[in-house]
Amino acid sequence: MHGLTLYSNPQSRGRMVHWMLEELQVSYETIWIRYGDDMKSDAYRVINPMGKVPALMHGDLLITECPAICAYLADRFPRHRLAPPVDDPRRAAYLRWFFFAAGPLEQAITARKLGWKVPPERARMVGFGSFDETLDTLQQAMLGGPWLCGDNFTAADLYLSSQLGWAMQEGIVPERPGFADYVAAAFARPAAERANAFNDANIAEA
């Protein structure tokens, strides 16, 4: 297996993947892709037909979609314990909340940000039901603390805290008990700080 190459933009979800790579302490290359013509170019669409970032090449393997990339890396580099093993009972909670963050939560945040109104009688047609129900459910995820799988920080925490932190910063998600502390603890991790500093330093280039 050859090296890791991340295609990203410092003002994108690719920050999550940089954070993940920093948690793993592996060497990787970053190729910055500018929004606009570069990201929609024929050359980049060979990497990702959607014309979006991030995308990760691991040798000859291509992985797109931020949660898929994070989950792949967690399983591919198990030494850092960012995903419970398949036979670990905590794997159930890990998968549950990882997919919840990537599905209902992100959809609910996007809908609220764009002002989409879901009629109550149509709530069962959307994966998140309602915005308030989604946040009520999210609070349950934090009951066992400090992380989704108890004492072990995982890729699911990385992804969830990234989504939640951005949504709170944008004023989309209101403060609820535990939300701010959870995000702050995640963002205080040295790997998160390194990833954010690296992206901030490259905003002018990309």
Rank of each mutant, 00 (worst) to 15 (best):
L56N: 03
G129R: 03
M168V: 02
V26S: 04
K40R: 15
G14V: 01
K113G: 01
L105K: 14
I109K: 00
L24Q: 06
L164K: 00
K52Y: 08
A43I: 13
A188H: 14
P54D: 11
L21D: 06
S41W: 03
T110N: 13
G59H: 07
A155N: 09
A55N: 04
R15W: 01
G165Y: 00
K40Y: 07
F198C: 07
M50N: 15
P67G: 05
W97Q: 03
D181V: 03
R81I: 00
V26F: 07
A102H: 02
S27I: 07
I63T: 05
G3I: 02
E205P: 01
M1T: 11
R90M: 07
F198D: 14
G51Y: 08
M16F: 08
W116L: 15
K113S: 08
Y159H: 15
K40H: 14
R96T: 01
N48I: 03
K40W: 02
Y44I: 04
K113L: 06
G3L: 09
V53I: 15
R79G: 14
C70Y: 00
V183I: 07
N9D: 12
Y159M: 11
P174I: 13
N196K: 14
P120W: 02
M125T: 10
E133R: 12
A111E: 06
R45A: 10
C70L: 15
V17M: 06
V86W: 06
Y72F: 15
S162P: 06
H58M: 06
S12Y: 08
Q140V: 06
E29G: 03
F99L: 09
M1P: 11
V26Y: 03
Y72L: 09
M39C: 14
W166M: 10
R91N: 02
N48D: 10
V118C: 01
A102P: 01
A192V: 06
A191H: 05
D157S: 07
I31K: 13
M142A: 00
I47A: 13
T154M: 04
G59V: 05
W116Y: 11
W97S: 04
D87C: 07
R96H: 12
P146G: 04
N199G: 04
F99S: 09
E133F: 04
V46T: 14
E193Y: 07
A71Y: 02
H80L: 10
E121N: 11
L95A: 12
R81Q: 12
G145A: 15
V53N: 05
F99K: 00
A206C: 12
